[in-house]
């Protein structure tokens, strides 16, 4: 721990604010953070593959944080109402995406119209409708 601390202080890394979102808003924004910050996130993971030393990827990590804050600010400016509706639904429904498809769809369409970002689920089977766009899914809320 002492070596990593001294390593991080010897090479100055610019200061960064922490992301202030809690779990539900983060989960609601997750796919858009993934779409918007793809390059920074991939950079960070590639850097981590290079070396697991905590001091090695501080710069890349800060870029990831800064990008997330940037997206969240834009999201709240453009789709604030839809964003709030979706994360408040998630918070009531045990953070399950499948129980909150209605507010999710309004958020997704707003994010596409205003910021041009789409939700894509990585690793979902190609050629099939992704689960968040299925109109009559098998697994849905028992109570309406």
């Amino acid at each position: 721990m002492a070596e990593t601390l001294s390593a991080s202080t010897s090479t100055p890394v610019p200061h960064v604010e922490e992301v202030g979102l809690t779990s539900a808003p983060l989960k609601s924004a997750a796919f858009f953070i993934g779409a918007y910050c793809k390059e920074y996130n991939e950079d960070f993971v590639l850097c981590k593959n290079e070396s697991r030393d905590p001091a090695h990827c501080l710069k890349e990590g800060r870029k990831v944080t800064r990008c997330a804050i940037d997206l969240i600010t834009k999201m709240r400016e453009n789709c604030g109402k839809q964003f709030d509706a979706h994360w408040e639904c998630l918070e009531r429904k045990n953070h399950e995406y499948y129980l909150c498809r209605k507010p999710e769809r309004t958020l997704n369409s707003c994010m596409f119209d205003k910021l041009g970002l789409t939700k894509t689920i990585p690793g979902s089977p190609p050629g099939q409708t992704p689960i968040h766009e299925v109109t009559n899914p098998i697994y849905k809320a028992v109570q309406k």
Binding site: E17, E18, V19, G20, L21, T22, S23, F83, W87, E91
Partner: peptide, 18 residues
């Protein structure tokens, strides 16, 4: 983490910067 941000494990906050 939510508890450290808001003081309660179920507290929620949607400000970009902590």
């Amino acid at each position: 983490r939510d508890k450290e941000l808001t003081g309660h494990k179920r507290g929620q906050l949607a400000t970009p910067v902590a």
